[in-house]
Amino acid sequence: MKTTKSTTDRQNLRNGLLFCSPIIMGLSVFTLYPVLASLYYSFCNYPMLKPPVWVGISNYRTLFHDPVFYTSLYNTAYYAIFATPIGLGVAFLLALLLNQKVKGMALFRTMFFVPSIVPMVAGSVLWLWLLNPQYGLINSLLISMHVPANLIPGWMADPLWSKPALILMSTWGVGGTMLIYLAGLQDVPVDLYEAADIDGATSLQKMWNITIPFMSPHIFFTLVMGFIGAAQYFTQAFVMTGGTGGPVDSTRFFSLYLFQNAFQYWKMGYACSMAWILFIVILLFTLLLFKTSARYIYYGGEK
């Protein structure tokens, strides 16, 4: 009996390894090794053409005295703090609107969703022109509404307005989050609303006591994913500023500065230490989100 069991065990292991071999190899070669190597390089002077030389914490020390590092950190924090909640809020409002029993819902859903699959490069090129101070649609609209000339934003030409411009653009692409919320809203039990109606609850009370608790797992999931995405914000800023992060470094986001260090200045070790700081910040913040919000999330009576 013991031998048959160990034969099945061995067979199970063999089959398991066989089917999972792509991801085991993939994780080892494309994730695990690079993560460890980048940790090692972060303690090295590595100008790409020469082999890495161990320099201890010197990269990190330089980094903490690098003003551009702080600028890029500030830019990314600014973006994450505004773009994530605004995006989630807009997505939630759109989902609430579409969850009303209206005719043509599928069509409207598509209209809200399509911008989110527009290739980032095409979207960035488009918005660069939408936001163009002279020819752009948005400023044309503001001018036609007789907004005084000194109040019309310069958008990507003005360091004060460049980040709001990018946040505005990111709000255009919240269609995916909206679909997640829409699916969640359709799972909220209708009888709870009916019971609340009988008790004479207002719409606001129903929203706060029924909808929001039932939606909390979805909100939490999109908050975590939105934050992780925002912390790595790169492509749009790169395309819209030709890789410079201008004007006056106002869109030099953390990942953009990291990219410049790695692939333009060829300071691989320095870039790796930035990457590890980013990784640790994301990890800590995600853990913090999990810890602080665990008791606010309602899993439909499972817990």
Binding site: F30, T31, P34, Y41, Q232, S255, F263, A271, A275, F279
Partner: peptide, 24 residues
Amino acid sequence: ALFVLMLSTMMLPAMVTSIPLFII
């Protein structure tokens, strides 16, 4: 354990692995 490990790599910023991958 492997499944959890795999899912948790979705949190890993692409920039962390990009430099060693570039060298490989």
